[in-house]
Design a protein around this nucleic acid. Structure first.
Lengths: 101, 101
DNA sequence: ATTATATTTCTAGAATATTCGAATTACAGA
DNA sequence: TCTGTAATTCGAATATTCTAGAAATATAAT
């Protein structure tokens, strides 16, 4: 992963509301969660929520699939895993990494 | 870790320049790296660099120790580890986590 | 066609972030 | 104490983000 892409994903997650959205979607599992249910859960205006979801979608951390009138959001686990891998490998949390590089 | 703290750290890392700064400090290892050497490496004005370092310090991802006239910056591995742990546990990258919660 | 529900896009104000030159502070050596 | 090096803080311009109401779009049921 390029450092700019990692930064973009970190920035997307670096907002308390968006981090809550993402966490809720992870907890929703494979089934995902409709925008409307996210709104009920997080108690934020629809337009604000839509704006934040768009940010998460733009960095591929979330995808949306329409089911008639509702849009179901899904966490993109693989891309989150890629981000975590980047942090561990490039900015690694383990103190010993300095010697490895 | 509280979700707000995690978001604050993610936000701090969610800027390409700051992510580069943090990565350089990780690679510098236990010895850390003076602000001046970071400036030479990243080629950004001193005031801009200082501003970004301050942001990283404010969320405890970096600490600074003065060595006479130079300020040596150190990556705070443990806190990065805490952030990664949060992502894995709360927003976990593993698809199977949904069933666990 | 009309109505209802779900969600997005438009719009705009307020708040915050980014950038960097200039001035300032911190420290040590002569 | 004067000088030089290191780094921060100040100040101000520019850009971006956040928020949310209002209007618009999408879909399906009647």
């Amino acid at each position: 992963m390029k450092i700019e892409d990692a930064a973009a994903r970190l920035e997307a997650l670096g907002n308390p509301t968006r981090l809550r959205i993402y966490r809720a979607l992870v907890r929703a599992g494979r089934a995902g969660m409709p925008v409307g249910r996210l709104q009920g859960k997080l108690k934020i205006p629809a337009s604000t929520l839509s704006h934040h979801i768009k940010t998460l979608v733009s960095v591929d951390l979330v995808t949306q699939v329409r089911d008639s009138t509702t849009l179901v959001c899904h966490a993109q686990y693989a891309n989150m895993q890629g981000l975590v891998d980047f942090l561990v490998e490039e900015c690694c949390a383990d103190e010993t990494c300095a010697e490895q590089q």
